[in-house]
């Protein structure tokens, strides 16, 4: 058996691809030969993705998507199918944080994080699933977080969504395995991105002390695991949550 990680002739949709982990995932899938559609919430973000892909000589484009809007999703999927073909690789990466202690948390802080991080995974996955079942091949990778397993004070909303996508993934994996579709969850630990750069210095230091590898992870180290799961090499892995966190949490 030849193990291959080539993604030639595949169309991949990566949400939240303008920066951080999503950008690294989009670029890595592109490097492996996929045509990559990276989404951003703004036109400027989408153009940035297009420019980055073009600069690296990768196939694909940046597109605008508001993952909380069914209409925005329908418009995106119609345009992508027309221009590139239906995506059979989906990486649900878009996510936000609105941290607060629960006793101070506003309904809006709870609801918007649930909608963007969890309901959007339902929405976008459902939108792509029909074409994957038709193709009898598909790869769905949801980006979770170590916080979904460990918990973290001030992130009850975020942690609920990140644990939620793992359960969603296990159930969907059972539903669509017979169609050659795998569904997995990748749970990054403390990765060097804009999302973690805003943490206070003392919180960063406290976290670093808990990481056996003694450093932050790079976005490319998450992208490599996603690429494995998206490729034929990862074809027998499904319903799994893979932790990539330098050892700060060992499941």
């Amino acid at each position: 058996m030849t193990i291959t990680t080539s993604l030639n002739d595949k169309v991949a949709l990566v949400t939240g691809a303008s920066r951080g982990i999503g950008a690294a995932i989009a670029d890595t899938l592109g490097d492996l030969g996929a045509t990559v559609i990276g989404t951003a919430t703004s036109e400027a973000g989408a153009e940035k993705i297009s420019a980055r892909l073009a600069e690296k000589g990768l196939k694909g484009a940046g597109k605008v998507l508001d993952v909380t809007s069914a209409d925005s999703l329908a418009a995106l999927l119609a345009a992508v199918k027309e221009e590139f073909g239906a995506p059979t690789i989906l990486v649900n990466n878009a996510g936000i944080t609105k941290d607060n202690l629960l006793m101070r948390m506003k309904d809006e802080e709870w609801a918007s994080v649930i909608d963007t991080n969890l309901s959007a995974v339902y929405r976008v996955t459902k939108g792509c699933l029909r074409d994957m079942t038709k193709a009898r091949w598909g790869r769905i990778v949801n980006i979770s977080s170590v916080v979904g397993s460990m918990g973290n004070a001030g992130q009850s909303n975020y942690a609920a969504t990140k644990a939620g996508v793992a359960g969603f993934g296990r159930s969907l994996a059972a539903e669509v395995g017979s169609r050659g579709i795998t569904v997995n969850t990748v749970a990054p630990g403390f990765i060097d991105t804009d999302m973690t750069r805003v943490l206070p210095e003392e919180q960063r230091e406290a976290l670093m002390a808990k990481i056996p590898l003694g450093r932050l992870g790079e976005p490319e180290e998450i992208a490599a695991v996603v690429a494995f799961l998206a490729s034929d090499a990862g074809g027998y892995v499904t319903g799994e949550t893979i932790h990539v966190n330098g050892g700060m949490y060992m499941a």
Binding site: R130, T133, E175, V176, S178, R179
Partner: peptide, 11 residues
């Protein structure tokens, strides 16, 4: 047919 087959059939 299983339940997923019937959904696909209707589609």
């Amino acid at each position: 047919a299983d339940s997923l087959d019937t959904v696909e059939l209707v589609m």
